[in-house]
Design a protein around this nucleic acid. Structure first.
Length: 656
DNA sequence: GCCGTTTTCGGCCCGACTGTTTTCAGTCG
C-alpha cells in the first residue's frame, strides 16, 4: 500500500513537459514580471502595521493596516493582475491610501512607504513581536535604549543580563524572553482540522470528568471550522470552577502553564498548541459562546453594533452605556443583560442567528441585517459521495467493504473512482481491469437490490436492520489528466462509466497557461463530470496549482462541470474563497470524501464545513440531489456542451 | 487609515491576567 505522499509527489518527477517559462525581469513597459501574490501583498501591509505599532503610531492606523492586510491576503481575485488592468476591486478596509500603495508595489516593484519606515526602524524588529509576552512598547524600548533589533541580539542581551536594567524588565522577565525565543525556534505548526479534533476530544473527555461539570464546548476557530487551527479554546459550565481548573492544569503533556486565574487558564502542550479554558457562570453561556467563537473582526462588528444600540457587549453580556460619559455603567447603577443562548444575543442586536462558520466578518453581518443569510448545506443534506477508492487501485479495502460501509452510513449512492492507467504509482487500472471491475460492481448492485426487495417484502433484513430507500454503487474513475493534456482513457471507455472524476497529479509545475489549458480540456470533454481537488494543494504543505481560476469558473459553469470540494482534511480543496467565488460564478460543486479507507468515508463532514464557510447552499451541491436527478445531470454533459456552443474535446483511440 | 441615511470630521471593542508595582501599563485573545 502506497502512502498518499508517494502517490502525490513521486509523479512530480515527470515534470519534464516543456521548459519553465523564464521571462525577462520586466517587459518594455517597465512592469515587473515578478508580480506579488495576494499573500505577499498582505504580508507587506502586515509588516507596515507592525512597524507602525512599534513606532507608537495611532493604534487605529495600525489596526487599519492589519485589517487591510487580512482582506488583501484573503481576496479571491488576483490583485496584482487586477491593478495592472486598472480594475482594482473594492475591498472593505482598503481605502485610497492603501490602494495607492498596492498599485505602486505592483507597477514599480517597490513600496516607498515601507522602505522609508524600515530605514527608520529595522524590519527585523517585527520578529521580536513574535516572542510571547513581548509587545510593541517593550520592543520599541529595547531598540531605542539598547539598539537591539534582531532575535540573536536579543538573546545575547538576555543571556548577559543587559535587559533587566530596562524599566519594567526584571531578571525573571529576561528568562521569559529567553524561553520565548526558544519556543519560537521549535514553534509548532498550526494543526489541521482532524489533528485539532483529536486533541480536543482527548482534553474534553478529561474535563467532563471533573465534578460539577455541566457542559464543555470547544469554541474558537475550531468551532468555526477554519482550515487550520492555532489555539484550542474550551468553554465550560460548572458548579465547581476550582475542581475543573485543577483538572485542566493536570492534563497530560503540559509544557507550561501560561496563565491561571479564578475563571480562566491557559496552557501550552508539549506536542502542540496552546489551550485556553474559560469558565462560564451557569445560564449565561450566550455571550460567552459568541465572544469565544467569532473571529476578532466579527466580534468587533458586534460590539460596535451593541454600542450603537446603547450597550457595551463583552463575554459577560450587555451593560447599558451611560449616555453622558459614553462608558458602560457599572456598580449598583449597572443595567446588565445576560442570555443563555447565542440566538438571544444576536436577537438582542437585532440580528438573526449567524452560523459559527460564517462569523468571520466576510459580509455575514450585512447579510443578516438584510435578511439574506444563506441556508447553509449540512451533513444531513448529503445523499451520497462521488469520490472514493478501493484496493483495486490505492485504497486499502475491497470494493464490497467500501460499498457496505457507505450503505451502512445511510447513503443512497457511493461512487467508486479508482485511479486510471497512467498513474501507475497508485496502481491505476488498465482498460481490461476496468471491464472486470464493472462486473464486480454490477453483481454487488444486483445483490443490494435483491436484499432491499426482500426487506420490503418482509422476507429478509438488511445488515443493520433498517431498510434505506435504496443504495447504488456508481462505477466511476479518477481520470488522470496527463502532462500533455491527454486523458487516460478513450471516449468509448469513458462513455461507459456512471461518472468520471478528472484530476491532475503530474506536471504540477507547468506554467499557468499550460496547466489551465489541461484543466479546460478536461472540462470540455463530453465525459468528464467532476474536476477533483481542483487546486491540487495540500493544507500546510503544498501550494495551489497556478491556474487561471476565473477562466475555469466560467467554463465549468457554462458546461455544468462540477468542481469538487474535497473533504480530506489534508486537502480541503477547493479552498473557501475559491469555492465562494466559484458558486457565485454559477458553478456546481460536489462534497466528496476521497476515501482510501473506511474511516475516511466520514471526511465528507470536513467538506461540508468547508462548504458552509464558503456560504454554499444545498441546491448547488450535486450530491444533495436525489439519485435520479444526479444521474440525469451526469448523462446530459454532451448535450450541455452543444447547447452552450462549446466544441467537445474528444479523446480518440486507445492511449498507452 | 477607514468610514459614513444619525457623521466628509470624529469616531473607531472589551476584559482578564501578569509583572513589577504601590495604582497600573502592557499583553493577549
Amino acid at each position: 500500500m502506497l502512502h498518499d505522499d508517494d502517490l502525490e509527489d513521486a509523479p512530480d518527477g515527470a515534470d519534464s513537459a516543456g521548459p519553465a517559462l523564464m521571462g525577462p525581469a520586466s517587459d518594455a513597459s517597465g512592469i515587473p514580471a515578478d508580480l506579488p501574490t495576494n499573500a505577499e501583498l498582505g504580508r507587506l501591509f502586515g509588516e507596515i502595521g507592525d512597524l507602525l505599532e512599534i513606532k507608537g503610531e495611532l493604534v487605529f492606523k495600525v489596526v487599519a493596516y492589519r485589517r487591510a492586510a487580512d482582506v488583501i491576503a484573503a481576496c479571491p481575485v488576483d490583485l496584482a493582475s487586477a491593478y495592472l488592468e486598472g480594475k482594482p476591486p473594492r475591498l472593505a478596509g482598503v481605502g485610497q491610501a492603501i490602494s495607492d500603495k498596492i498599485d505602486e508595489r505592483v507597477r514599480t516593484g517597490r513600496l516607498g512607504f515601507l522602505d522609508r519606515l524600515s530605514a527608520e526602524l529595522p524590519l527585523t524588529l517585527v520578529d521580536l513581536l513574535r516572542i510571547p509576552g513581548l509587545g510593541p512598547r517593550t520592543v520599541s524600548q529595547i531598540y531605542r535604549d539598547l539598539g537591539i533589533a534582531t532575535l540573536d541580539g536579543l538573546r545575547v542581551a538576555a543571556e548577559t543580563g543587559r535587559l533587566r536594567g530596562l524599566r519594567g524588565i526584571s531578571a525573571r522577565t529576561e528568562q521569559l524572553v529567553l524561553s520565548g525565543i526558544e519556543s519560537l525556534a521549535l514553534q509548532v505548526q498550526r494543526l489541521r482540522l482532524n489533528e485539532a479534533e483529536e486533541r480536543i476530544e482527548s482534553i474534553e473527555a478529561i474535563l467532563r470528568q471533573a465534578p460539577g461539570v455541566r457542559r464543555v464546548v470547544p469554541a474558537g476557530s475550531f468551532r468555526r471550522r477554519r482550515e487550520t487551527i492555532g489555539d484550542l479554546d474550551f468553554l465550560a459550565e460548572t458548579d465547581n470552577p476550582a475542581a475543573l481548573l485543577e483538572r485542566f492544569l493536570a492534563v497530560p503533556r503540559i509544557r507550561e502553564v501560561i496563565a491561571q486565574g479564578s475563571h480562566k487558564a491557559a496552557i501550552s502542550l508539549r506536542d502542540g498548541p496552546n489551550v485556553d479554558l474559560m469558565i462560564m457562570p451557569p445560564g449565561e453561556a450566550g455571550a460567552y459562546l459568541v465572544h469565544f467563537t467569532g473571529s476578532r473582526e466579527h466580534n468587533v462588528r458586534l460590539r460596535a453594533r451593541a454600542r450603537d444600540l446603547g450597550w457595551s457587549l463583552s463575554e459577560k453580556g450587555f451593560l447599558r452605556i451611560d449616555p453622558e460619559t459614553g462608558q458602560a455603567l457599572t456598580g449598583p447603577a449597572a443595567e446588565r443583560r445576560t442570555m443563555a443562548t447565542e440566538a438571544e444575543v444576536y436577537a438582542f442586536l437585532g440580528l438573526p442567528f449567524i452560523e459559527p462558520e460564517l462569523r468571520e466578518d466576510q459580509g455575514e453581518i450585512e447579510a443578516a441585517l438584510a435578511g439574506r443569510l444563506p441556508r447553509l448545506v449540512s451533513l444531513d443534506d448529503l445523499q451520497g459521495d462521488l469520490h472514493s477508492h478501493s484496493g483495486w487501485s490505492d485504497g486499502t479495502e475491497p470494493v464490497e467493504v467500501m460499498a457496505e460501509e457507505a450503505r451502512r452510513r445511510g447513503r443512497r449512492y457511493q461512487a467508486l473512482t479508482d485511479h486510471t492507467w497512467s498513474l501507475q504509482v497508485a496502481n491505476g487500472l488498465a482498460p481490461d481491469r476496468v471491464e472486470e471491475q464493472r462486473g464486480v460492481i454490477a453483481a454487488l448492485n444486483a445483490r443490494f437490490e435483491a436484499e432491499e426487495r426482500a426487506a420490503r417484502l418482509g422476507t429478509g433484513r438488511l445488515p443493520d436492520g433498517a431498510a434505506p430507500p435504496g443504495f447504488r454503487l456508481l462505477h466511476g474513475c479518477e481520470l488522470e489528466i496527463r502532462t500533455d493534456g491527454r486523458l487516460d482513457y478513450d471516449d468509448d471507455l469513458l462513455a461507459r462509466f456512471d461518472l468520471v472524476v478528472a484530476s491532475l497529479h503530474v506536471g504540477r509545475r507547468q506554467p499557468r497557461e499550460q496547466l489551465t489549458a489541461r484543466v479546460l480540456m478536461a472540462i470540455r470533454s463530453p465525459h468528464v463530470d467532476v474536476i477533483a481537488h481542483p487546486s491540487g494543494r495540500k493544507v500546510l504543505r503544498r501550494p495551489d496549482l497556478d491556474l487561471d481560476w476565473d477562466a475555469i469558473y466560467v467554463e465549468a459553469a457554462r458546461t455544468g462541470t462540477i468542481l469538487e470540494m474535497n473533504g480530506s482534511p489534508d486537502r480541503l480543496d477547493l479552498a473557501v474563497e475559491r469555492a465562494r467565488r466559484a458558486v457565485a460564478a454559477g458553478c456546481l460543486v460536489a462534497i466528496d470524501s476521497d476515501a482510501h479507507r473506511i474511516r475516511e468515508l466520514d471526511d465528507v463532514r470536513w467538506g461540508v464545513s468547508q462548504a458552509r464557510r464558503a456560504w454554499v447552499e444545498p441546491d448547488r451541491v450535486v450530491n444533495t440531489w436525489e439519485p435520479e436527478r444526479l444521474l440525469a445531470w451526469l448523462a446530459g454533459k454532451e448535450a450541455r456542451l452543444i447547447a452552450a456552443g462549446v466544441e467537445p474535446h474528444r479523446q480518440p483511440g486507445a492511449v498507452a
